[in-house]
């Protein structure tokens, strides 16, 4: 991190960052101000991840960062040196088969314009994992109990992803269906 020393004046500072994005290793030289979102879109050409509000309020930039969903607009790339990132481009199987979440979004017509969809897909993928790990949500009547993914739980857990077209009923149905599908796949 030699290149990232403090400068008293307003000279841009650059830093070396390694990222594994959708299984591919990248070594990058970035401005310390660069968000992970801008690095994905501008430096790596992965434009599936969308810039909505750029303030962490809309969720369009949601990616999986070291296995957990995160707003790529609020993550400084330099702070995530060494991270594994999965974007919407990396959700499908290697042979191109869509994931359970992606299939369910198609089946339940869970989008209209599609701009929020990459973030919705990444977020929903993480929600299923969070529930598998027993993480509670604010929808729980008893925060100590293991969660059951009903519609109220899905709405609460997906509340960080806004949809201007209002495709929410389809999104809730799709997440519900995907939870069922992934249970079949894992045999859980």
């Amino acid at each position: 991190m030699d290149s990232a020393n403090t400068t008293g004046d307003a000279v841009p500072v650059r830093a070396a960052v390694a990222l594994a994005v959708n299984g591919t290793e990248h070594r990058l030289d970035v401005d310390t101000r660069s968000s992970l979102l801008d690095v994905l879109r501008e430096d790596l050409g992965l434009t599936g991840t969308k810039k909505g509000c750029d303030h962490g309020q809309c969720g369009a930039c949601t990616v999986l960062l070291d296995g957990r969903r995160a707003n790529a607009c609020l993550a400084l790339a330099v702070a995530h040196d060494g991270a594994r990132v999965v974007t919407v481009e990396g959700l499908a199987e290697e042979d191109g088969r869509l994931s359970a979440v992606q299939e369910s979004f198609l089946e339940h017509d869970a989008f209209q314009c599609g701009y929020c969809t990459p973030g919705q897909l990444c977020s929903a993928t993480a929600v299923l994992e969070e529930v598998r790990q027993g993480w509670p949500s604010a929808a729980a009547a008893d925060v100590a109990a293991d969660p059951v993914l009903d519609d109220d739980e899905i709405r609460e857990r997906m509340s960080g992803n806004l949809c201007r077209c209002g495709a929410y009923p389809g999104i809730v149905a799709a997440v519900h269906a995907a939870a069922g599908r992934s249970r079949e796949v894992t045999g859980a």
Binding site: M1, T6, T7, P12, V13, R33, V78, A79, D81
Partner: peptide, 9 residues
């Protein structure tokens, strides 16, 4: 955004 140095502790 104003440029800044970055150090990880």
């Amino acid at each position: 955004m104003r440029p800044f140095g970055y150090e990880r502790a």
